[in-house]
Amino acid sequence: MTYEPWDEGVATAMLEPFTSDATLVLVALQALQARFGFVPEAAVPLVAHTCNVSRADVHGVLSFYHELRTQPPATREVRVCRAEACQAVGARDIERAFADAGHPVGSRTSALAVDAVYCLGNCALGPTVEIDGAVHGRCDTDIVREALR
């Protein structure tokens, strides 16, 4: 996935439709992340001003949702499903294999981020791993090599 570099002017312009609407704080943050890959600290006062809420309100929303990021994404984003249906077919082995390769779940470098996700809705064909948005089913530990490629 490619994103534009953060640009306050571009961000201000794209937030225009959200003016004075407090109910659009989450949508505004999602729109910024979709465009720039993350929501930098500098965006918080911008969204607060646009939607006419406090900076604390914006920070509250930004810190609540697991998917909103305040750091730029890695070149490769991997999510390992850690929910029960995938646990039943070896998700823990896959997690261990990522850890053995030096990329435990929760680790992040500029090249590779490995996160946990709780269900991608592929529960009959687990274990499931998502690499850059593509869902891979019936995975075994070979998926680690695929993710590191």
Binding site: A83, E84, A85, C86, Y118, C119, G121, N122, C123, A124
Partner: peptide, 11 residues
Amino acid sequence: DEGDSGTFADR
């Protein structure tokens, strides 16, 4: 918001 593990019918 089908978040339950083991469910995918909504999707």
